[in-house]
Write a protein that binds this DNA or RNA. Structure first.
Lengths: 195, 195
DNA sequence: CGCGACGTTGATTTGCCTCAACGATTGTGG
DNA sequence: CCACAATCGTTGAGGCAAATCAACGTCGCG
């Protein structure tokens, strides 16, 4: 079960587990290999899984009435991805979740997650802690969107996540930061001239 | 202890409590009366409390480098407010939290919250659930900001929270929705003409 | 090799901001 | 309780950041 080592390590950053607990936890997981451009969540269908990325990159995005895409999350190894609104409330998704690269993910389904928390209450704590982190993250993003211009938001992103910035397609990044791909292209152009 | 009834009811929407548990919970709380325009959190100081509003209205906002205000949260009775980044990590705040009306709030401090979860693990679940809700809420807000124009966002807000829209000052609402007070004024003007 | 997806570049447009000046409302001290 | 100041909201003119549109380059894949 070598493939589960990363996720067990991840969990142990937040809570301590006995060998038995690890075993039970791992027994609820499943591994899935996703090809680039493949979807793991689509609107209308209930999102069954919370997914932890072992390798690869994925994004979750909304398509609005005019057909424009808006990226909510971009995730790479050691991060989670899902349509959490759909997952947590077990209601139809509104987002697409798509692989940006060939990816390997570990999934837990909603029902197993409930059982896990029943049986090992420490996991209640685990999910609380990671949700708090995500919440804090989103709040910072909202503030950044409200208080900063496009170029400044781009700079901030590049300095915080240089790995992601150079790895994902430009339309994904632009639609995450909240502007058009053309504009992102112009920003980048401006920068290379400056140096 | 009549004043604590609303918050106990709130908690019981998520978890069941025995009388003893309620008593212990309530023993950790304190009531505070805040005058309009008074702050309960200021930048640089660590945010000590999570606050539940019994009556009144409050907002949390950031002041950027140009001196502009950006409202992160507007809360009224039966909602929470805090600088959660500061509270959860017990680090210096970046936000102001200010009363928009004379308000009565119930507060729990960070340390008590930890003790509460130790002693009554059900509260671990409670805080997980409310954090999940907040998370889902923020994600929707990000999507709304990305995919909708100013007027549409305003309409959405008014139809979802008519009570709040007509109750808070316009600069609070505008800076929450992400545009200028002047522009909000123009939007409203346009509407009254249409009808 | 050729086609489709992705990125670039420039011209034009637009949604919203900024600035400024003016009403309206609130609250406060005399 | 009134007068006047401060705060809050309104209106219009002009400006700018970023969108849109269109056309063209380029890369990777079947």
């Amino acid at each position: 079960m070598d493939e589960f080592i990363p996720i067990v390590n991840y969990v142990e950053r937040y809570i301590q587990l006995t060998e038995d607990e690890k075993e039970y936890f791992v027994s609820l997981l499943r591994i899935s290999r996703i090809k680039k451009k493949q979807y793991i969540v689509q609107p209308e269908f209930v999102c069954k899984y919370r997914s932890y990325i072992i390798s690869g990159a994925m994004r979750a995005y909304l398509v609005d009435d005019k057909g424009k895409e808006h990226t909510v999350v971009i995730s790479i190894e050691d991060w989670w991805i899902s349509d959490f609104n759909s997952y947590l409330n077990q209601e139809p998704a509104t987002l697409f979740v798509e692989a940006l690269e060939d990816s390997v993910i570990i999934q837990i389904d909603f029902h197993s997650e409930q059982m896990l928390m029943e049986r090992i209450p420490k996991f209640e704590r685990f999910f609380r802690l990671i949700t708090q982190r995500s919440f804090a993250f989103l709040q910072k993003r909202i503030l950044s969107n409200l208080s900063k211009g496009a170029e400044e938001r781009y700079d901030e992103f590049v300095s915080k996540y240089p790995a992601i910035a150079n790895r994902v397609p430009q339309y994904a990044l632009a639609s995450y930061l909240g502007f058009s791909t053309e504009f992102l292209s112009k920003i980048r152009n401006r920068k290379t001239k400056k140096t």
